[in-house]
Design a protein around this nucleic acid. Sequence first.
DNA 1: TTTTGAGTTGTTCGA
DNA 2: GTCGAACAACTCAAA
Length: 436
Amino acid sequence: MEKWTVFWFRRDLRLQDNAGLYHALQTGNRVLPIFIFDSAILEQLEAHDARVYFIYQQLEQMNKLLAANNQQLAVFYGKPEAVFEQLLQNHAIESVYTNRDYEPYARKRDASIHQLLEKNGVSFYTSKDQVIFEKKEVVKDDGTPYVVFTPFSKKWKLLRQGNALAHYPSENLLHQMATHDYQFPTLADIGFQPAPILVPPYSLQQQLIENHEATRNFPALSNGTSRIGPHLRFGTLSVREAVRLAEATGKETFLNELIWREFFMQILWHFPHTTTQSFKPAYDRIPWRNNEEQFERWCQGKTGYAIVDAGMRELNATGHMHNRVRMVVASFLCKHLLIDWRWGETYFAKHLLDYEQASNVGNWQWAAGSGVDAAPYFRIFNPMEQQKKFDNLHQYIKKWVPEWDKASYVKPIVDHKEARALCLSTYKMALENNTM
DNA sequence: TTTTGAGTTGTTCGA
DNA sequence: GTCGAACAACTCAAA
Protein backbone atom coordinates (compact mmCIF):
# COMPACT_ATOMS: atom_id res chain seq x y z
CA MET A 1 0.00 0.00 0.00
CA GLU A 2 1.26 3.45 -0.91
CA LYS A 3 2.50 5.48 2.06
CA TRP A 4 0.49 8.60 2.72
CA THR A 5 1.00 11.78 4.66
CA VAL A 6 -1.92 13.37 6.49
CA PHE A 7 -2.35 17.12 6.81
CA TRP A 8 -4.68 18.13 9.62
CA PHE A 9 -6.43 21.51 9.18
CA ARG A 10 -7.55 23.27 12.36
CA ARG A 11 -7.35 27.05 12.57
CA ASP A 12 -5.58 27.54 9.27
CA LEU A 13 -8.41 27.15 6.78
CA ARG A 14 -6.65 28.18 3.60
CA LEU A 15 -4.73 26.45 0.85
CA GLN A 16 -2.28 29.26 0.21
CA ASP A 17 0.71 30.34 2.31
CA ASN A 18 0.06 27.56 4.81
CA ALA A 19 3.25 26.46 6.57
CA GLY A 20 2.24 23.00 7.74
CA LEU A 21 0.46 22.16 4.51
CA TYR A 22 3.50 23.26 2.55
CA HIS A 23 5.78 20.97 4.57
CA ALA A 24 3.36 18.06 4.18
CA LEU A 25 3.17 18.50 0.42
CA GLN A 26 6.96 18.71 0.19
CA THR A 27 7.40 15.18 1.52
CA GLY A 28 6.63 13.90 -1.96
CA ASN A 29 3.98 11.59 -0.50
CA ARG A 30 0.35 11.77 -1.43
CA VAL A 31 -1.23 14.05 1.15
CA LEU A 32 -4.65 13.39 2.66
CA PRO A 33 -6.10 16.73 3.83
CA ILE A 34 -8.40 16.27 6.81
CA PHE A 35 -10.54 18.37 9.11
CA ILE A 36 -12.16 17.08 12.30
CA PHE A 37 -15.25 18.64 13.85
CA ASP A 38 -14.31 17.89 17.45
CA SER A 39 -17.41 16.55 19.16
CA ALA A 40 -16.13 17.61 22.59
CA ILE A 41 -16.13 21.24 21.44
CA LEU A 42 -19.23 21.18 19.25
CA GLU A 43 -21.40 19.60 21.92
CA GLN A 44 -21.05 22.78 23.98
CA LEU A 45 -22.32 25.05 21.20
CA GLU A 46 -25.74 26.06 19.95
CA ALA A 47 -26.90 24.42 16.71
CA HIS A 48 -26.86 27.76 14.90
CA ASP A 49 -23.38 28.81 16.08
CA ALA A 50 -21.97 31.28 13.56
CA ARG A 51 -18.39 30.11 13.95
CA VAL A 52 -19.18 26.51 13.10
CA TYR A 53 -21.17 27.67 10.11
CA PHE A 54 -18.26 29.84 8.98
CA ILE A 55 -15.85 26.93 9.29
CA TYR A 56 -18.22 24.73 7.36
CA GLN A 57 -18.56 27.28 4.58
CA GLN A 58 -14.82 27.74 4.41
CA LEU A 59 -14.31 23.98 4.07
CA GLU A 60 -16.82 23.99 1.23
CA GLN A 61 -14.90 26.84 -0.35
CA MET A 62 -11.63 24.94 -0.14
CA ASN A 63 -13.35 21.90 -1.60
CA LYS A 64 -14.45 23.91 -4.59
CA LEU A 65 -10.87 24.91 -5.27
CA LEU A 66 -9.67 21.35 -4.87
CA ALA A 67 -12.41 19.95 -7.09
CA ALA A 68 -10.56 21.28 -10.12
CA ASN A 69 -8.06 18.45 -9.64
CA ASN A 70 -10.65 15.91 -8.55
CA GLN A 71 -9.55 16.31 -4.96
CA GLN A 72 -11.44 17.07 -1.79
CA LEU A 73 -11.05 17.36 1.96
CA ALA A 74 -11.75 14.40 4.21
CA VAL A 75 -14.02 15.85 6.88
CA PHE A 76 -14.91 13.97 10.06
CA TYR A 77 -17.03 14.44 13.16
CA GLY A 78 -15.95 12.92 16.46
CA LYS A 79 -13.12 12.74 18.96
CA PRO A 80 -9.79 13.37 17.25
CA GLU A 81 -8.27 10.27 18.88
CA ALA A 82 -11.03 8.06 17.46
CA VAL A 83 -10.73 9.63 14.02
CA PHE A 84 -6.99 9.01 13.91
CA GLU A 85 -7.41 5.42 15.07
CA GLN A 86 -9.78 4.90 12.16
CA LEU A 87 -7.40 6.57 9.70
CA LEU A 88 -4.52 4.41 10.88
CA GLN A 89 -6.59 1.33 10.10
CA ASN A 90 -7.70 2.54 6.69
CA HIS A 91 -4.39 3.78 5.28
CA ALA A 92 -0.66 3.25 5.41
CA ILE A 93 0.24 6.55 7.05
CA GLU A 94 3.84 7.57 7.33
CA SER A 95 3.47 11.01 8.87
CA VAL A 96 0.98 13.58 10.09
CA TYR A 97 1.53 17.33 9.68
CA THR A 98 -0.33 20.18 11.31
CA ASN A 99 0.09 23.80 12.43
CA ARG A 100 0.63 24.51 16.09
CA ASP A 101 -2.22 25.70 18.27
CA TYR A 102 -1.28 27.20 21.62
CA GLU A 103 -4.48 27.15 23.65
CA PRO A 104 -4.42 24.85 26.68
CA TYR A 105 -7.12 22.54 25.30
CA ALA A 106 -5.32 22.23 21.97
CA ARG A 107 -1.98 21.53 23.60
CA LYS A 108 -3.47 18.67 25.56
CA ARG A 109 -5.29 17.30 22.53
CA ASP A 110 -2.16 17.43 20.39
CA ALA A 111 -0.04 15.76 23.05
CA SER A 112 -2.51 12.91 23.15
CA ILE A 113 -2.57 12.56 19.34
CA HIS A 114 1.22 12.70 19.29
CA GLN A 115 1.33 9.83 21.74
CA LEU A 116 -1.17 7.78 19.72
CA LEU A 117 0.78 8.29 16.50
CA GLU A 118 4.11 7.54 18.10
CA LYS A 119 2.71 4.27 19.44
CA ASN A 120 1.87 3.36 15.85
CA GLY A 121 5.23 4.36 14.43
CA VAL A 122 3.85 7.46 12.70
CA SER A 123 5.74 10.77 12.81
CA PHE A 124 3.94 13.89 13.95
CA TYR A 125 5.28 17.23 12.69
CA THR A 126 3.94 20.60 13.75
CA SER A 127 4.68 24.03 12.27
CA LYS A 128 4.51 27.61 13.36
CA ASP A 129 1.86 29.29 11.23
CA GLN A 130 -0.61 31.36 13.21
CA VAL A 131 1.92 33.80 14.63
CA ILE A 132 5.15 35.49 13.63
CA PHE A 133 6.82 34.66 16.95
CA GLU A 134 5.73 31.90 19.29
CA LYS A 135 6.53 30.35 22.65
CA LYS A 136 9.92 31.64 23.84
CA GLU A 137 11.01 33.45 20.70
CA VAL A 138 10.37 36.90 22.18
CA VAL A 139 11.74 36.90 25.72
CA LYS A 140 13.91 39.12 27.86
CA ASP A 141 17.66 38.79 27.63
CA ASP A 142 17.62 36.50 30.65
CA GLY A 143 15.21 34.14 28.91
CA THR A 144 12.12 34.90 30.99
CA PRO A 145 8.86 36.06 29.41
CA TYR A 146 7.82 39.68 29.12
CA VAL A 147 4.70 40.60 31.06
CA VAL A 148 4.63 44.24 29.95
CA PHE A 149 3.55 45.06 26.43
CA THR A 150 5.83 47.91 25.43
CA PRO A 151 9.17 46.16 25.94
CA PHE A 152 7.69 43.02 24.39
CA SER A 153 6.69 44.98 21.29
CA LYS A 154 10.12 46.60 21.08
CA LYS A 155 11.84 43.23 21.15
CA TRP A 156 9.30 41.85 18.65
CA LYS A 157 10.10 44.64 16.21
CA LEU A 158 13.81 44.27 16.79
CA LEU A 159 13.61 40.59 15.91
CA ARG A 160 11.61 41.39 12.78
CA GLN A 161 14.08 44.00 11.59
CA GLY A 162 15.80 43.09 8.37
CA ASN A 163 14.12 39.69 8.17
CA ALA A 164 11.87 38.79 5.28
CA LEU A 165 8.57 37.23 6.28
CA ALA A 166 8.48 33.51 5.68
CA HIS A 167 6.38 32.39 2.74
CA TYR A 168 5.03 28.89 2.24
CA PRO A 169 3.64 28.54 -1.30
CA SER A 170 1.51 25.51 -0.51
CA GLU A 171 -0.84 26.55 -3.31
CA ASN A 172 1.73 25.49 -5.87
CA LEU A 173 1.90 21.89 -4.69
CA LEU A 174 -1.75 20.95 -4.49
CA HIS A 175 -1.30 18.29 -7.20
CA GLN A 176 0.33 16.20 -4.46
CA MET A 177 -3.03 15.71 -2.72
CA ALA A 178 -4.39 12.21 -2.47
CA THR A 179 -7.72 11.21 -3.98
CA HIS A 180 -10.16 9.39 -1.71
CA ASP A 181 -13.86 8.74 -1.35
CA TYR A 182 -14.69 10.05 2.10
CA GLN A 183 -18.10 11.69 1.93
CA PHE A 184 -18.26 15.37 2.73
CA PRO A 185 -20.83 15.66 5.55
CA THR A 186 -23.80 17.98 5.41
CA LEU A 187 -24.18 20.63 8.07
CA ALA A 188 -27.06 18.60 9.51
CA ASP A 189 -24.78 15.53 9.68
CA ILE A 190 -22.68 17.31 12.27
CA GLY A 191 -25.76 18.56 14.12
CA PHE A 192 -25.73 22.20 13.00
CA GLN A 193 -27.87 24.66 11.07
CA PRO A 194 -27.05 27.69 8.97
CA ALA A 195 -26.39 30.63 11.28
CA PRO A 196 -28.28 33.91 11.17
CA ILE A 197 -24.92 35.69 11.47
CA LEU A 198 -22.27 35.70 8.78
CA VAL A 199 -18.59 36.56 9.09
CA PRO A 200 -18.00 39.73 7.06
CA PRO A 201 -15.06 39.84 4.68
CA TYR A 202 -11.96 41.63 5.93
CA SER A 203 -10.47 44.81 4.60
CA LEU A 204 -6.74 45.41 4.52
CA GLN A 205 -6.68 48.43 2.29
CA GLN A 206 -3.69 50.66 2.70
CA GLN A 207 -5.94 53.61 3.39
CA LEU A 208 -7.54 51.86 6.34
CA ILE A 209 -4.21 50.91 7.87
CA GLU A 210 -2.89 54.43 7.42
CA ASN A 211 -5.97 56.02 8.98
CA HIS A 212 -6.27 53.43 11.67
CA GLU A 213 -4.84 55.51 14.48
CA ALA A 214 -7.28 58.34 13.76
CA THR A 215 -10.40 56.28 13.13
CA ARG A 216 -10.17 53.17 15.25
CA ASN A 217 -11.73 54.66 18.37
CA PHE A 218 -14.97 55.75 16.78
CA PRO A 219 -17.51 52.97 16.74
CA ALA A 220 -19.80 54.74 14.28
CA LEU A 221 -17.14 54.50 11.58
CA SER A 222 -17.77 51.01 10.33
CA ASN A 223 -14.97 51.51 7.83
CA GLY A 224 -12.53 52.32 10.62
CA THR A 225 -11.79 48.70 11.45
CA SER A 226 -10.37 45.90 9.36
CA ARG A 227 -12.58 43.06 10.67
CA ILE A 228 -9.65 40.69 10.29
CA GLY A 229 -10.26 39.17 13.74
CA PRO A 230 -12.30 36.11 12.71
CA HIS A 231 -10.07 35.57 9.69
CA LEU A 232 -6.95 35.47 11.80
CA ARG A 233 -8.76 33.23 14.24
CA PHE A 234 -9.64 30.63 11.60
CA GLY A 235 -6.66 31.22 9.37
CA THR A 236 -8.62 32.35 6.34
CA LEU A 237 -6.09 35.18 6.38
CA SER A 238 -2.41 34.46 6.92
CA VAL A 239 -0.97 36.58 9.73
CA ARG A 240 2.13 37.04 7.59
CA GLU A 241 0.00 38.78 4.98
CA ALA A 242 -1.45 41.10 7.60
CA VAL A 243 1.97 41.92 9.03
CA ARG A 244 3.42 42.49 5.58
CA LEU A 245 0.81 45.12 4.81
CA ALA A 246 1.07 46.71 8.23
CA GLU A 247 4.83 47.02 7.94
CA ALA A 248 4.59 48.39 4.42
CA THR A 249 2.68 51.45 5.62
CA GLY A 250 5.17 52.23 8.36
CA LYS A 251 2.28 53.06 10.70
CA GLU A 252 2.70 51.63 14.16
CA THR A 253 -0.87 51.50 15.47
CA PHE A 254 -2.17 48.73 13.29
CA LEU A 255 0.97 46.65 13.63
CA ASN A 256 0.78 47.05 17.39
CA GLU A 257 -2.65 45.42 17.39
CA LEU A 258 -1.14 42.38 15.72
CA ILE A 259 1.66 42.40 18.28
CA TRP A 260 -0.90 42.58 21.11
CA ARG A 261 -2.38 39.39 19.73
CA GLU A 262 1.01 37.68 19.97
CA PHE A 263 1.71 39.24 23.36
CA PHE A 264 -1.40 37.66 24.86
CA MET A 265 -0.75 34.36 23.10
CA GLN A 266 2.69 34.33 24.62
CA ILE A 267 1.23 35.16 28.04
CA LEU A 268 -1.20 32.25 27.74
CA TRP A 269 1.64 29.98 26.68
CA HIS A 270 3.68 30.81 29.76
CA PHE A 271 0.77 31.23 32.19
CA PRO A 272 -2.00 28.87 31.07
CA HIS A 273 -3.65 29.01 34.50
CA THR A 274 -4.74 32.59 33.81
CA THR A 275 -7.72 31.27 31.84
CA THR A 276 -9.39 30.72 35.21
CA GLN A 277 -7.23 32.52 37.75
CA SER A 278 -6.23 36.14 38.01
CA PHE A 279 -2.68 36.85 36.88
CA LYS A 280 -2.33 38.92 40.04
CA PRO A 281 -3.51 36.45 42.69
CA ALA A 282 -4.68 39.13 45.13
CA TYR A 283 -7.44 40.07 42.72
CA ASP A 284 -9.09 36.72 43.35
CA ARG A 285 -9.87 38.05 46.82
CA ILE A 286 -12.29 40.63 45.45
CA PRO A 287 -15.79 39.81 46.72
CA TRP A 288 -17.67 40.04 43.43
CA ARG A 289 -21.33 40.84 43.89
CA ASN A 290 -22.32 38.68 40.89
CA ASN A 291 -25.92 39.84 40.81
CA GLU A 292 -27.55 37.54 38.26
CA GLU A 293 -30.35 39.89 37.35
CA GLN A 294 -27.88 42.69 36.63
CA PHE A 295 -25.73 40.31 34.64
CA GLU A 296 -28.76 39.38 32.54
CA ARG A 297 -29.49 43.06 31.90
CA TRP A 298 -25.88 43.57 30.84
CA CYS A 299 -26.07 40.61 28.45
CA GLN A 300 -29.25 41.87 26.84
CA GLY A 301 -28.10 45.47 26.55
CA LYS A 302 -30.60 46.87 29.04
CA THR A 303 -28.43 48.58 31.62
CA GLY A 304 -29.74 52.06 30.92
CA TYR A 305 -26.26 53.23 29.85
CA ALA A 306 -26.58 53.80 26.12
CA ILE A 307 -23.04 53.03 25.02
CA VAL A 308 -22.96 49.84 27.09
CA ASP A 309 -26.32 48.73 25.74
CA ALA A 310 -25.36 49.60 22.16
CA GLY A 311 -22.24 47.49 22.45
CA MET A 312 -24.00 44.48 23.88
CA ARG A 313 -26.76 44.68 21.28
CA GLU A 314 -24.19 44.96 18.51
CA LEU A 315 -22.51 41.84 19.87
CA ASN A 316 -25.76 39.91 20.13
CA ALA A 317 -26.86 40.89 16.65
CA THR A 318 -23.60 40.59 14.72
CA GLY A 319 -21.08 38.59 16.75
CA HIS A 320 -18.87 41.64 16.70
CA MET A 321 -18.32 44.63 18.97
CA HIS A 322 -16.20 47.67 18.31
CA ASN A 323 -12.99 47.50 20.31
CA ARG A 324 -13.45 50.82 22.10
CA VAL A 325 -16.87 49.66 23.22
CA ARG A 326 -15.51 46.30 24.38
CA MET A 327 -13.42 48.19 26.91
CA VAL A 328 -16.41 50.18 28.07
CA VAL A 329 -18.75 47.22 28.57
CA ALA A 330 -16.02 45.17 30.22
CA SER A 331 -15.14 47.95 32.62
CA PHE A 332 -18.83 48.45 33.35
CA LEU A 333 -19.37 44.78 34.19
CA CYS A 334 -16.33 44.44 36.42
CA LYS A 335 -16.34 47.84 38.07
CA HIS A 336 -19.85 49.26 38.02
CA LEU A 337 -21.60 45.96 38.60
CA LEU A 338 -18.77 44.20 40.44
CA ILE A 339 -19.34 41.03 38.45
CA ASP A 340 -16.49 38.55 38.06
CA TRP A 341 -14.50 39.07 34.85
CA ARG A 342 -14.87 35.34 34.15
CA TRP A 343 -18.61 35.81 33.61
CA GLY A 344 -17.93 38.41 30.95
CA GLU A 345 -15.15 36.35 29.42
CA THR A 346 -17.52 33.40 29.08
CA TYR A 347 -20.23 35.52 27.49
CA PHE A 348 -17.81 36.97 24.95
CA ALA A 349 -16.50 33.48 24.23
CA LYS A 350 -19.97 32.39 23.28
CA HIS A 351 -20.79 35.33 21.06
CA LEU A 352 -17.66 36.77 19.47
CA LEU A 353 -16.90 35.63 15.94
CA ASP A 354 -13.29 36.58 16.52
CA TYR A 355 -13.11 34.86 19.90
CA GLU A 356 -9.50 34.12 20.72
CA GLN A 357 -8.94 32.69 24.15
CA ALA A 358 -5.60 34.41 24.72
CA SER A 359 -6.84 37.88 23.75
CA ASN A 360 -10.19 37.50 25.44
CA VAL A 361 -8.79 36.36 28.77
CA GLY A 362 -5.98 38.89 28.56
CA ASN A 363 -8.24 41.82 27.81
CA TRP A 364 -10.86 40.87 30.40
CA GLN A 365 -8.18 40.64 33.04
CA TRP A 366 -6.91 43.98 31.88
CA ALA A 367 -10.39 45.46 32.34
CA ALA A 368 -10.74 43.92 35.78
CA GLY A 369 -7.27 45.15 36.71
CA SER A 370 -6.11 41.64 37.54
CA GLY A 371 -4.01 40.96 34.47
CA VAL A 372 -0.59 41.69 33.03
CA ASP A 373 0.14 45.32 32.40
CA ALA A 374 -3.28 46.16 33.81
CA ALA A 375 -4.66 49.59 34.37
CA PRO A 376 -4.69 50.90 37.94
CA TYR A 377 -7.91 49.85 39.55
CA PHE A 378 -9.06 53.40 40.14
CA ARG A 379 -9.18 53.87 36.39
CA ILE A 380 -12.91 53.41 35.95
CA PHE A 381 -14.50 54.23 32.62
CA ASN A 382 -17.36 56.70 32.84
CA PRO A 383 -19.89 55.51 30.22
CA MET A 384 -21.22 59.03 29.64
CA GLU A 385 -17.72 60.45 29.16
CA GLN A 386 -16.81 57.67 26.76
CA GLN A 387 -19.98 58.34 24.83
CA LYS A 388 -19.18 62.04 24.61
CA LYS A 389 -15.63 61.40 23.48
CA PHE A 390 -16.18 58.64 20.97
CA ASP A 391 -19.79 58.88 19.81
CA ASN A 392 -20.53 62.53 20.25
CA LEU A 393 -23.05 62.59 17.40
CA HIS A 394 -24.87 59.58 18.85
CA GLN A 395 -24.66 57.73 15.55
CA TYR A 396 -23.54 54.46 17.05
CA ILE A 397 -25.97 54.66 19.94
CA LYS A 398 -28.93 55.51 17.73
CA LYS A 399 -28.16 52.60 15.50
CA TRP A 400 -28.32 50.01 18.26
CA VAL A 401 -30.49 51.69 20.90
CA PRO A 402 -33.09 53.64 18.96
CA GLU A 403 -35.07 54.41 22.12
CA TRP A 404 -32.08 55.81 24.05
CA ASP A 405 -33.38 59.40 24.31
CA LYS A 406 -37.02 58.50 24.82
CA ALA A 407 -39.02 58.06 27.98
CA SER A 408 -39.38 54.36 27.19
CA TYR A 409 -35.63 53.79 27.62
CA VAL A 410 -34.81 51.75 30.71
CA LYS A 411 -33.54 53.61 33.79
CA PRO A 412 -29.86 53.06 34.68
CA ILE A 413 -29.51 49.91 36.80
CA VAL A 414 -26.85 51.57 38.93
CA ASP A 415 -25.95 55.15 39.67
CA HIS A 416 -22.55 55.95 38.21
CA LYS A 417 -21.26 57.91 41.17
CA GLU A 418 -22.38 55.36 43.72
CA ALA A 419 -21.14 52.41 41.68
CA ARG A 420 -17.77 54.07 41.25
CA ALA A 421 -17.41 54.70 44.96
CA LEU A 422 -18.45 51.16 45.84
CA CYS A 423 -15.98 49.74 43.34
CA LEU A 424 -13.11 51.80 44.72
CA SER A 425 -13.80 50.81 48.30
CA THR A 426 -14.35 47.14 47.43
CA TYR A 427 -11.11 46.89 45.47
CA LYS A 428 -9.23 48.86 48.05
CA MET A 429 -10.29 46.62 50.88
CA ALA A 430 -9.61 43.40 48.98
CA LEU A 431 -6.17 44.52 47.87
CA GLU A 432 -5.03 46.23 51.03
CA ASN A 433 -1.36 45.70 51.86
CA ASN A 434 -0.94 43.62 48.75
CA THR A 435 -1.37 44.74 45.21
CA MET A 436 0.26 41.67 43.74
C1' DT B 1 22.85 44.43 43.29
C1' DT B 2 20.90 48.71 42.95
C1' DT B 3 18.78 52.28 40.73
C1' DT B 4 15.80 54.51 37.66
C1' DG B 5 12.11 55.46 34.61
C1' DA B 6 8.14 53.68 32.82
C1' DG B 7 3.85 51.33 32.66
C1' DT B 8 -2.48 50.75 25.99
C1' DT B 9 -6.73 52.73 25.89
C1' DG B 10 -9.31 57.37 32.59
C1' DT B 11 -11.80 60.38 35.67
C1' DT B 12 -12.40 63.86 38.92
C1' DC B 13 -11.47 67.90 41.32
C1' DG B 14 -10.07 72.32 42.11
C1' DA B 15 -7.43 76.27 40.71
C1' DG C 1 -12.99 75.92 29.21
C1' DT C 2 -8.31 74.34 30.41
C1' DC C 3 -4.81 72.40 33.12
C1' DG C 4 -2.28 69.70 36.41
C1' DA C 5 -2.49 66.87 40.24
C1' DA C 6 -4.42 63.11 42.64
C1' DC C 7 -6.04 58.71 42.49
C1' DA C 8 -1.74 53.47 45.08
C1' DA C 9 1.61 51.69 45.22
C1' DC C 10 3.95 48.27 42.82
C1' DT C 11 6.33 45.74 39.48
C1' DC C 12 8.85 45.45 35.48
C1' DA C 13 12.85 45.98 32.40
C1' DA C 14 17.09 47.51 31.54
C1' DA C 15 21.17 49.91 32.63
